[in-house]
Simulated assay, not measured.
Amino acid sequence: MSVEIRPLSGDDHARVHDFLTQRWAGPVMLLGGEAIDASRLPGFIAMDGDEIAGLVTIIKRDAEWEILTLDSINRWGGVGTQLLDAVVDDARKAGIGRLTVRTSNDNLDAFRFYQRRGFRFENIVQGVIDQEREQKPEIPLRGEYGIELHDEILFARHL
């Protein structure tokens, strides 16, 4: 798939907000009990003409960056890899030596995606999704492949 990958700009906010609402049930994500509006974060967008083909949002910290969302409209088409590569390149230019990403225990496709791209399991936080569901009831009880959602898995990659 031929797409244009570019950094997010302020002009993208409305379309990113809508995209996250369609794909993630809203732009607000819970991270360690904190509500974060992913539509306001830096990141990269993949455009196929006038349409969003994918999006990655990043929390930039001094020593490491964390991918909060990574989404591609057409799975297996390479857009997710292109977005991740853009983050890796940007992090290296900024002198960042480590990337992290969290996913739910049901997201087997994400397990495979990140491990194939050099990420390793680092931590499992048991029950965190059950706690987050109290704050955000729209978090489903079951996710991909009918697996119950309970835990969060942290992956990390050293650059």
Rank of each mutant, 00 (worst) to 15 (best):
E4H: 10
R6Q: 04
P7H: 09
L8Q: 11
S9A: 06
F19D: 03
Q22P: 08
R23W: 11
P27I: 02
P27V: 03
V28M: 08
V28C: 02
M29L: 14
L31A: 03
G32C: 07
G33D: 06
A35T: 12
D37C: 05
R40I: 07
G43Q: 00
G43A: 06
G43W: 07
A46Y: 09
G49C: 03
D50C: 02
I52D: 11
I52A: 06
I52C: 03
G54D: 10
L55F: 00
T57R: 10
I58H: 00
K60N: 05
R61A: 14
R61E: 14
D62G: 00
D62P: 03
E64P: 06
E64Y: 02
W65T: 05
W65G: 08
I67A: 01
I73R: 01
I73S: 02
N74M: 08
N74K: 15
R75P: 14
V79C: 06
V79T: 14
G80A: 10
A86H: 09
A86D: 08
V88K: 05
D90F: 01
A91D: 04
A91E: 09
G95A: 00
G97H: 12
G97E: 11
R102H: 09
S104Y: 08
S104T: 15
N107V: 08
D109I: 11
A110C: 04
R116N: 15
F119V: 07
I124R: 11
Q126Y: 12
G127P: 06
V128N: 02
V128K: 07
I129G: 05
D130A: 13
D130C: 11
Q131K: 13
R133W: 10
K136F: 10
I139V: 05
P140S: 13
G143Y: 07
G146S: 04
I147S: 03
I147P: 04
E148F: 03
H150R: 13
H150E: 06
I153T: 00
F155W: 03
H158N: 13
L159D: 14
L159W: 06
